[in-house]
Computed example of a mutant assay.
Amino acid sequence: MTPINLIATLTPAPGQAAALRAGLLAITPPSRQERGCERYEVLESGEDDTLRFHVIERFTDEVALQAHGDSDHFRAFSARFGEWLAGPPEVIRARDLPA
């Protein structure tokens, strides 16, 4: 199996940083409990107009990633994107390098 790494950057819409932060903090515990989730971290960068949230995710395989996307908690969270985000999330899919 090839693990899947995702780095998602979310930019809050004006006045929505606190709501987006709360949503991210709420989705983190159930995401970490999913079968196949190896890492699920939420980071914050910038201040005020440059505030961004970054979610670092690692799943064991495509099946685990799909299950995350299909989960009730993720669907409820992503249903609020239009309200909370200034634009679509930027998602980077990355591969492990042998070290």
Rank of each mutant, 00 (worst) to 15 (best):
E57P: 04
A94Q: 05
G36S: 09
R35G: 11
G69W: 00
R75E: 08
E41Q: 11
I7M: 15
T2E: 14
E41D: 14
G36W: 03
A86P: 03
A67Y: 03
G87N: 06
A18F: 02
R95S: 14
H68T: 04
A18K: 06
P98Y: 07
P98C: 08
V63G: 07
R39G: 08
A64T: 01
R58Q: 15
L24N: 01
A67T: 13
S71A: 14
R93Q: 15
R39W: 01
A18T: 07
Y40K: 07
V42A: 07
A26C: 05
L85W: 05
D49S: 12
F81L: 07
P88R: 13
P89L: 07
I56F: 13
I92Q: 14
R39C: 06
E83L: 14
G23F: 00
E41W: 11
A22C: 11
R93Y: 08
A99I: 10
V63M: 05
I56Q: 09
A17K: 04
H54A: 13
D49W: 09
A64Y: 00
A64P: 04
L85N: 08
R21P: 03
R95G: 02
D48P: 06
G46K: 09
Y40N: 05
A19Q: 12
I92C: 11
A8C: 15
Q33T: 04
F81K: 00
D49K: 14
G82Y: 04
P12R: 04
E38K: 12
H68M: 06
D61I: 01
L43H: 15
A94H: 00
D61L: 02
F81C: 03
V42S: 01
T2N: 11
E41G: 00
E38R: 14
E62L: 10
I4R: 02
V91M: 01
G36Y: 02
L65S: 06
E44R: 13
S31C: 03
L6H: 10
T9P: 03
L51P: 03
D70W: 02
V55I: 15
Y40M: 01
L25C: 01
A99T: 13
F59D: 02
E47Q: 14
I56Y: 09
A86K: 02
A64V: 02
T9C: 06
G15R: 05
I56E: 03
R32C: 03
F81V: 02
A94N: 05
F74N: 09
G82A: 09
